[in-house]
């Protein structure tokens, strides 16, 4: 009950609808420069609003660093105490560091229903340093979010 009131007071459902639209627009765009930002904002809010989705981070501790190859984007994501926190800074002691060529490449890796796997490998679009199981878990959550956004789940 308290959660519902809090959600209503902070306009989370409305923000979720707006973010969902932006996220879907981003998925359809050719450049998808803002993909990571959109994904993380949408994911953050989804964890707050959707109890089922939140189960994914219950008792989960994970430290991720997402970095564009040209170093123009550096985003740290920390899952702790059933919360997701995002920082625009470097992070030490990560479980995994994900380096990507650009937003489109990262999106293609995480979400594309027909990923250009060969092309992605050839171009080294996305590379990882660290525990791959953390990547798999994050990719699962991102995919789930996409399916929620498109109404497929």
């Amino acid at each position: 009950m308290l959660e519902k009131i809090l959600n209503w007071l902070t306009l989370r459902p409305l923000r979720m609808r707006i973010l969902r639209r932006k996220f879907l627009k981003c998925l359809e765009s050719e450049i998808a420069e803002e993909f990571l930002e959109m994904l993380l904002r949408f994911m953050s809010l989804a964890f707050l609003l959707d109890r089922d989705f939140r189960r994914n981070i219950e008792d989960f501790n994970g430290r991720y660093l997402f970095r564009s190859r040209d170093n123009s984007i550096t985003v740290a994501v920390v899952f702790k105490d059933n919360r997701m926190k995002v920082y625009e800074k470097n992070l030490e002691d990560t479980n995994v560091t994900v380096t990507f060529r650009n937003g489109k490449a990262l999106m293609g890796y995480l979400l594309s229903p027909k990923p250009d796997i060969l092309g992605s490998l050839l171009r080294q679009d996305v590379t990882f340093n660290g525990n791959l199981n953390y990547v798999y878990k994050f990719a699962y959550m991102a995919k789930r979010l996409q399916l929620m956004a498109t109404g497929e789940i």
């Binding site: 189960r55 008792d59 660290g130 791959l132 199981n133």
Partner: peptide
């Protein structure tokens, strides 16, 4: 698999066990 099984194995499968032991 998502909630019960895979989380237990995140640090325990052969690949990650080896990576950790030999510092990637």
């Amino acid at each position: 698999l998502n909630f019960e099984i895979f989380p237990y194995w995140m640090e325990r499968n052969i690949l990650e066990y080896t990576r950790k032991k030999h510092n990637n």
